[in-house]
Design a protein around this nucleic acid. Structure first.
Ligand code: MN
Ligand code: MN
Ligand code: ZN
Ligand code: ZN
Lengths: 139, 139
DNA sequence: CCGATATTGATAATCATTATCATTTATATG
DNA sequence: CATATAAATGATAATGATTATCAATATCGG
């Protein structure tokens, strides 16, 4: 994993710094979580106490750009990030309207719909699907 | 349409003011568009020159709450609103990665997937599906 | 080790959205 | 219609997340 990222960084003359390593570790250690910049900052500073919040923002953005992270919005005006596994198609999310819990759905099932849209002249690269409702606990 | 909204407002002791009427007009006159608060403000002040931006924010929020508008995020940290037609299930969006154009897809096709998820104990209320890719012009 | 260049941390700036509050309105009631 | 009361408004301050700036520092190829 780190090898791959190392290569992706090199492609664009990006350097592998301690801070970037730390942030990557944080993300790798929290699979299935969807962390905000602030949350990443809090976790990262345990390993790299001197790290600045600006570096966290910059790194999250850069990692998203090179396809290492996936960025989404669940609640009002704040981004959340998770490791992006480009091999499997991206999963969907169910957001509980009561407790806010985010659950992942591994099924995809959008291929038919995508094909239909491409018939109309579009080229689909990615999709993002969110379900809103109630989790088993809150139902 | 206005009758319905009038009724929805009354339910909660909300009042029908000139400003709210103006904002509703703006939204009704822009079907298929996805307007930001700032854009609604610019259009609204042509009919109600004295209207304040705070009122626009408040009204958009209130209309969303009572189901008159639908609120979504397309780009970084900014909400966009459109008229919400609760009779037909909500359409999907295709966002062009090149020119930013937003196209609507009327197909739904998510019922199967929703049913499958509900089998696992969830209750699905709504969904939001976005496709990212290239529009016919930019392909 | 050196030099060119990318990166960092501190902090100021920006941008969208919310909160505050005194003033103005909508609406129910007599 | 006049009046009381609670909701709504507009101006503006405050907030919260993100981005820009810039001098100091670190990376990395040679
Ligand atoms: Mn996820
Ligand atoms: Mn739409
Ligand atoms: Zn829940
Ligand atoms: Zn386009």
């Amino acid at each position: 994993m780190k090898k791959i990222i190392d290569a992706k960084l090199k492609e664009k003359d990006y350097r592998l710094t301690d801070q970037r390593r730390t942030i990557l570790d944080v993300m790798l250690k929290n699979p299935g979580k969807h962390l905000s910049a602030e949350e990443v900052f809090e976790k990262a500073r345990k390993k790299s106490p001197g790290i600045g919040i600006a570096t966290v923002y910059r790194t999250l953005e850069k990692f998203t750009e090179i396809g290492v992270l996936y960025k989404s919005v669940f609640e009002s005006g704040k981004f959340r990030y998770e490791i992006y596994n480009s091999e499997i198609h991206h999963h969907h999310h169910i957001i509980c309207l009561n407790c806010g819990k985010i659950t992942e759905v591994q099924d995809d099932l959008l291929n038919d719909l995508e094909r239909r849209i491409e018939m109309q002249g579009f080229k689909i690269i990615d999709h993002e699907l969110k379900f809103y409702g109630y989790c088993p606990n809150c139902k």
